[in-house]
Amino acid sequence: MPIRRLLAALAIVGMLASGVGIASMLIFSKPTQQQTTAPKRTPPTPPPPSVPTAKEFLIGVNVTAQECAPAGTCLYTYTIDPRYVGLHPFPPTPFTVEYEVTGGVAPQPGKFTVADQKANILKDVQVEGPPGAQLSANVLRVTGEATG
């Protein structure tokens, strides 16, 4: 029996020594070249400025006033809220976004110009429509000089 105990003790000491050796090697060793050199990633180049397409604009319609006559026709006052959802920068030259507001008696055309990153829009535009009309805007086209 004493030989078995001696061999068991030697096995335990050997396992502890190898565990300590592996742990110290992991802690104190220098990282390899592969671990320290990550591939350098360059950010993607931004797209060049260009005239946006009609799909890159969403236009909300904010109704600011409503007057309804007893005959059933209402006069709505609204202001549009254009939003650009494209990814490329605007061109340095002005461009025009043409749209129409629907939901009234007849579609009402409108347009605004974008210059120097700012849109010049009309406020408090009026349109006739039925009571409870839901006004919305559809972008028809964007016109301007192509650059680039």
Rank of each mutant, 00 (worst) to 15 (best):
M1I: 09
M1G: 12
P2Q: 09
P2Y: 04
I3G: 01
R4C: 00
L7F: 02
L7V: 06
A9Y: 02
L10I: 12
I12G: 04
G14F: 15
S18K: 09
S18P: 01
G19L: 14
G19N: 14
A23M: 08
S24C: 12
M25R: 13
M25L: 15
M25I: 13
F28R: 15
T32N: 05
Q33S: 14
Q33M: 10
P39F: 04
P39H: 07
R41C: 04
T42M: 08
P44R: 00
T45Q: 13
T45E: 13
P47D: 08
P48G: 08
P48T: 15
S50P: 03
S50Q: 14
V51R: 12
A54P: 02
K55G: 05
E56S: 05
L58N: 14
L58G: 01
V61S: 04
V63M: 04
Q66E: 11
C68N: 09
A71S: 15
G72A: 08
C74D: 00
T77K: 14
T79C: 06
I80R: 10
I80F: 06
D81T: 13
D81N: 14
P82Q: 02
P82N: 05
R83F: 05
G86M: 04
L87S: 11
L87Y: 14
H88N: 05
P91E: 00
P91F: 01
P92Y: 03
E100G: 01
V101L: 12
T102V: 12
G104H: 05
A106E: 13
A115Q: 13
A115N: 12
Q117L: 12
A119F: 03
A119V: 03
A119L: 08
L122M: 14
D124T: 01
V125W: 02
Q126E: 07
Q126F: 01
V127N: 01
G129C: 03
P130R: 11
P130H: 03
P131D: 04
P131I: 15
G132K: 11
A133K: 04
A133Y: 04
N138R: 14
V139M: 10
V139G: 03
R141F: 01
R141C: 01
V142Q: 01
T143K: 13
G144D: 02
G144Y: 03
A146S: 15
